[in-house]
Nucleic acid binder design. Structure first.
Lengths: 127, 127
DNA sequence: ATACATCTACGAAGCATTTCGTAATTTTTT
DNA sequence: AAAAAATTACGAAATGCTTCGTAGATGTAT
């Protein structure tokens, strides 16, 4: 249920989510744009992620091609769930208030959120 | 700016935020309600937190009395900021949509959030 | 004052994550 | 086919967090 992902595993998943199935080399190139790191480090991490079931790989062809086996939204939810438990006393609204109150949010984004709230309220009325 | 706090440091801060300035013994009692752990473990953690500046302590009297030196809201913000960077592509609305979409939120809480959004929109108009 | 309990300081072991070097294998180039 | 380049597997060191045992200091009770 709850997907556990370390920081560096997350940065690899980010690449896989964004670019789709990729080789170690490809993932490594992207990660190196932000942070100096050895090739075998990325390789080893991806091998560990394979053991843990966070990714799968296709071994046909010259180099292995890795695919994320967890959805980004599942990881997002898992992170939110943990934050709710550990720093927001289980209150989603407290989390939302902090998120909106302290980080710049564009008018368009505010509209999107308002729309979602209307929708949730409509759902609650229907039940 | 960005407060870094580990999991066990967080559980200690939780106690200090909730109960106010406390001794190691007091913090330890509370933590043990949830999780078996040695007294000196809690002690050591709080000493490390002192070095890091996460807490201060009053050394008068029989046992030291520790006080959180970071505000809960600062830690909350720091956590949200990290999540925004690492799993929500910097989009607060994406975070909010996930939080509201996947966790039960009462009508009252939805109202509070709506009120905040109105307020933010008013602010944006004024500028 | 002596014994007992409590508290602090601190070193070090245990654990998970991250890092990389080396060796073996496979692919590509000459 | 031999040399060079790229890839994989894997062991182990480095790091950071957590845990606890031991020793010494401080306070409390007999």
């Amino acid at each position: 249920m709850n997907v556990k992902v370390t920081d560096s595993e997350l940065s690899i998943l980010q690449v896989l989510w964004l670019y789709g199935p990729s080789t170690v080399r490809e993932v490594h190139e992207i990660i190196c744009l932000e942070r100096e790191v050895g090739y075998t480090t990325t390789l080893k991490l991806m091998q560990i992620m394979l053991e843990k079931g966070l990714v799968t790989r296709d071994e046909a062809g010259k180099s292995h091609r890795y695919t994320a086996s967890v959805k980004e939204s599942a990881v997002q939810q898992s992170f939110i769930g943990k934050m709710l438990d550990t720093v927001f006393h289980g209150s989603p609204s407290a989390l939302v208030l902090q998120a909106l109150g302290s980080h710049e949010t564009s008018p368009e984004e505010l509209e999107k959120i308002k729309a979602l709230i209307e929708q949730l309220e409509a759902q609650q009325r229907d039940q």
